[in-house]
């Protein structure tokens, strides 16, 4: 029953091999003359200013969080969408209730300014 996944195995092996070979070859064949400016963090050829590790604005967290939630919502839609023609009006009503509750959340988000980048 799992034989259908057999072609994935060569893909896995090939991906690991290609990645490993590229890393090893570039280490073996590439010239290595380290220099203070060469090993410095690349910043478009400029002299790097300040630390590379900086705090991200909190907006990224909010966008990421909302992305996960909508991601999960879409995943609930996929199995339903595959059969919704057979389910008829009942299926539409069930998904309607599901969707309506989520619309409340979206409306709150919108009016609370959650979709704006600047607060």
């Amino acid at each position: 029953m799992l034989d259908v996944y057999a072609p994935v195995a060569p893909l896995f092996i090939l991906a690991i091999l290609v990645g490993g070979i590229i890393l090893i070859l570039s280490r073996l064949m590439g010239p290595s003359k380290p220099h203070a400016r060469k090993v410095a963090t690349y910043e478009s050829g400029m002299r790097p200013i300040g630390p590379a590790v900086r705090r991200l604005p909190v907006q990224f967290h909010r966008v990421g969080m909302l992305f996960i939630l909508f991601d999960i919502e879409v995943i609930f839609f996929i199995p339903w969408a595959l059969v919704f023609r057979d389910l008829g009006f009942y299926g539409l009503a069930v998904m309607g209730v599901f969707f309506y509750v989520l619309l409340i959340g979206l409306a709150y988000e919108w009016f609370a300014g959650g979709l704006e980048w600047e607060q």
Partner: peptide, 8 residues
């Protein structure tokens, strides 16, 4: 999911 949305 709605509660999580509001919480976020």
């Amino acid at each position: 999911l709605t509660a999580a949305m509001i919480g976020a």
